[in-house]
């Protein structure tokens, strides 16, 4: 008790706030009068892949958007690499849901990837050969180099998702936040995305993914974060991704398909 008291007022009372790539404390977000995320704490561990898991409408995407300042929280704080969000924008890359965009927009694949260089190019900076080379390199990493000059509407859903990932790569960030990147994509895309994400982890980057497929959690991720408006559990997959925590997360809301997946996933 004495020790605790002596530390009072210093930041080290919650050391994770100073070190974690993404630390969230007491976050509440509501649309109208209904909280979508209620008083959530989250501490992402560096150099690991974390899955955010929960039923539909559990606040997974909202949590991510609040962490990025896209939606304004009612309360709570977000720290990125120990700093306020705005100071660390350049180090966070975001891959939004595919459905959030009009795919008939007049832009080519390489132009989309180049949007990842937005801060680097500034308002009036000219697009140079090295910028283009970097965009092409990022497209190559997701297997989409041959599509660089296509209009984005000509791509399949999975290809569009890979282009979004390439845009995030172009930014050269340290923390990657992805919203349902595997939703409705083909097997080839899923393979391509997961291998890129694992490559990022190997480089020491931190990856956080909103994920819906319970069957692949054990194969893909190191940590899980279970949410049903409130946080249910958080920790390494081996100890945290259990029948008990999933029951607590999904309650009676598990669809039959998900129950099947679950029994497979848990053996």
């Amino acid at each position: 008790m004495l020790e605790l008291a002596s530390n009072k007022g210093e930041r080290s009372a919650d050391p994770a706030l100073d070190t974690s790539p993404l630390a969230i404390r007491g976050l509440t977000v509501s649309y109208g009068q209904k909280p979508a995320v209620f008083s959530v704490d989250m501490t992402v561990r560096p150099g690991r892949m974390t899955a955010i898991i929960g039923p539909n409408g559990a606040g997974k995407s909202t949590l991510l958007k609040a962490a990025l300042g896209i939606v304004k929280p009612l309360s709570g704080q977000v720290r990125v690499f120990g700093q306020p969000l705005d100071a660390m924008r350049a180090r966070i890359a975001y891959v939004p849901q595919r459905a959030s965009v009009d795919w008939d927009f007049p832009t080519r694949v390489i132009d989309v990837v180049m949007m990842g260089l937005y801060r680097e190019l500034g308002l009036l900076g000219r697009v140079l050969g090295r910028h283009r080379a970097r965009a092409l390199d990022c497209l190559d990493r997701v297997g989409m180099k041959d599509f660089a000059l296509r209009q984005i509407g000509q791509l399949s859903g999975g290809q569009q998702q890979r282009v979004f990932l390439a845009r995030a790569l172009a930014q050269g960030a340290d923390l990657y936040l992805l919203d349902e990147p595997f939703a409705g994509v083909d097997a080839a895309t899923e393979k391509a995305i997961i291998s890129v994400l694992k490559g990022l982890r190997a480089e020491g980057k931190t990856v956080v993914v909103v994920h819906h497929d319970l069957a692949t959690v054990r194969d893909y991720f190191d940590d899980v974060f279970l949410i049903a408006t409130r946080k249910v559990a958080e920790g390494p997959v081996e100890t945290t991704f259990t029948a008990e925590t999933l029951q607590a997360t999904y309650g009676g809301r598990l669809a039959t398909a998900q129950v099947d997946q679950l029994s497979q996933a848990l053996g």
Binding site: L68, I70, I92, Y94, P96, S100, L123
Partner: peptide
């Protein structure tokens, strides 16, 4: 328009991504 064409294009194409980049 010349000064703002990049952020305006970004916001028009993908407002959430733009917000995430601090626009």
């Amino acid at each position: 328009v010349a000064l703002l064409h990049r952020p305006m294009t970004l916001v028009a194409f993908d407002p959430e991504y733009a917000a995430a980049r601090g626009v």
